[in-house]
Design a protein around this nucleic acid. Structure first.
Length: 481
RNA sequence: GGCGCAUUCGUCUAGGGGUCCAGGACGCCGCCCUCUCACGGCGGUAACACGGGUUCAAAUCCCGUAUGCGCUACCA
């Protein structure tokens, strides 16, 4: 049986590319395309090229290109070649277009946009499907050349076009349905169709994995590859990523760019893992894996055909899984942007991070949790609801004073001695340990919930813990008076 | 409209003729662990779009239908 993954081009070094247009931030769909290309290249020892497709001068922006590059870097997507900017290669596209004209495979078209619009409107009015009239093609064939601004159109040859897509399998199109498409615009800049094919030939790209929205462009590209006498690369069209409304993921249904997820406090490893699982699965029950692990199993031909809905809930869960498995030293650099203007040092935070990393799903959550540790004692606020629940009983202040004394005597100040001290005190009063623990939690963290309180005390240190406990006692006394 | 593609729990998926009255994960619900909150453990909820074939046997193969999505530019 024919298997597309061991096709005829084994003699040629496998080469893949990611080719975004710099018209906005890196979209998560684009990020997934970049990741899938990377994984396939790594799996088969191929090379990976980054190419910026900025031939649309109207919409392309250099700063977007830079943002895309930095998002890819943040994700850990590393390329072997590039970034190559198509805007640096405009002459090459013009040259190739001229070749096709010289070979009679393309022609100059002098129709203006206005004329074409009028034709289109007329066709629509008549309820018919619009097609390019071909008037300039005919004129070119009888040698009736004009002067003035023009585009270069490709002469589409009729006949069926068939290709085997790594993901879709056999795909068929009818050449008759294709219009003579534009290769070179009237401003002398190439269209996507021209630049992408010229580049994939020049750069010896063997595998083109791109979004599903390009599937119906593929026959045009195949015709161009043939016109240039080049090998047609293997295609793989990735299904789209959908929003919860089952439409192409848009801002309406949530964040769409890699940067937004970064700012939400998602770690890159988690985003990559999550995106890799959208449309692909290593088989079995495996959910959590690194990009390196994935690249040992990944194959474009195993990617699902159906579009996948982006589920932010699951991303959050996965991010939590990553956070809780990461050592504090590894989390810290990712955390810094969320720590405000004067971020505490890693040494100050290490213990608190370890204690809290399994208690949040995003870096933001963790940063918020960490505040109770680094905040100045006098700025610590007691959660109203928890105070109401736990700060009661006439003898509370007295009990807290005793607890303060007991903890002050705890030596060394570790989880065992502090817990032992508190439990003994509780027992001697014939009350549950909770009667002391909950107020202590409020004293130390200001919150109704926290990591195990003796761990918190140890991380805060004896001095700070006692100071905070004393502060609670003082405020209880103040209220009593 | 034309062309193309797709369709397994709410969502991501496993599965590719019998081992599937469909497995895992997220979510949700319950229980356990427990000083609280998480984490973790256990259990539960929930799906083969529909209709015809082929076959001893279909989630799996074929054909329709429906629905959705994409493309239909001098955007990519």
């Amino acid at each position: 049986m024919y298997s597309p993954r061991c096709s005829r081009r084994l003699h040629r070094r496998m080469k893949l590319r990611f080719a975004p247009s710099p018209t906005g931030f890196l979209h998560v769909g684009g990020a997934r395309t970049a990741i899938f290309n990377l994984l396939h290249a790594r799996r088969y020892g191929g090379t990976y090229l980054l190419r910026i497709e900025d031939t649309d001068v109207e919409r392309s922006r250099q700063h977007h290109a830079e943002q895309i590059v930095s998002s890819l870097t943040w994700l850990g997507v590393e390329w072997d070649e590039g970034p190559i900017y198509q805007s640096d290669r405009l002459e090459r596209y013009r040259e190739r277009a001229a070749e096709l004209v010289a070979q009679d495979k393309a022609y100059r078209c002098y129709c203006t946009i206005e004329e074409l619009e009028a034709d289109r409107a007329a066709a629509e009015k008549a309820g018919k499907q619009w097609h390019y009239s071909g008037r300039c093609r005919i004129a070119a064939e009888i040698g009736d050349e004009r002067e003035g601004p023009h585009v270069i159109r490709f002469k589409v040859t009729p006949g069926p076009i068939h290709f085997r897509d790594l993901i879709r399998g056999d795909v068929h199109f009818e050449g008759e349905l294709l219009d003579d498409f534009v290769l070179l615009r009237s401003d002398d800049n190439p269209t996507y169709h021209l630049s992408v094919v010229v580049d994939d030939i020049d750069m010896e790209v063997t595998h083109v994995a791109r979004g599903d929205d390009h599937l119906s462009n593929t026959p045009k590209h195949i015709l161009l590859f043939r016109a240039f006498g080049a090998d047609v690369p293997t295609f793989a069209h990735l299904p789209l990523i959908l929003g919860s409304d089952k439409k192409r993921l848009s801002k309406r249904t949530g964040a769409t760019s890699v940067e937004e997820y970064r700012d939400l406090g998602i770690v890159p490893e988690a985003l990559v893992n999550f995106l890799t699982l959208l449309g692909w699965s290593p088989g079995g029950d495996r959910e959590l894996f690194t990009a390196d692990e994935a690249s040992e199993m990944f194959d474009l031909s195993d990617v699902n055909k159906a579009p996948a809905v982006f589920d932010p809930e699951k991303l959050l869960w996965m991010n939590g899984q990553y956070l809780m498995r990461m050592p504090a030293d590894e989390i810290y650099p990712h955390l810094v942007p969320f720590l405000g203007d004067a971020p505490p040092s890693l040494d100050e935070l290490r213990g608190a991070i370890e204690l809290n990393k399994s208690r949040g799903r995003t870096l933001r959550d963790i940063a918020d949790l960490l505040q109770s540790y680094t905040i100045a004692d006098e700025e610590l606020e007691y959660d109203a609801e928890a105070s109401k629940k736990h700060l009661k009983g006439d003898d509370l202040a007295e009990r807290m004073r005793e607890l303060h004394a007991a903890l002050a005597a705890a030596e060394p100040f570790d989880v065992n001695t502090t817990e032992e001290a508190l439990r003994q005190l509780a027992e001697s009063h014939g009350v549950g340990a909770g009667k002391l623990i909950h107020p202590l939690r409020l004293a130390l963290t200001g919150r109704g919930s926290s990591p195990p309180i003796f761990d918190v005390a140890v991380v805060l240190g004896k001095e700070k813990s006692l100071r905070r406990l004393q502060r609670l006692i003082d405020s209880l006394d103040a209220i009593a008076r």
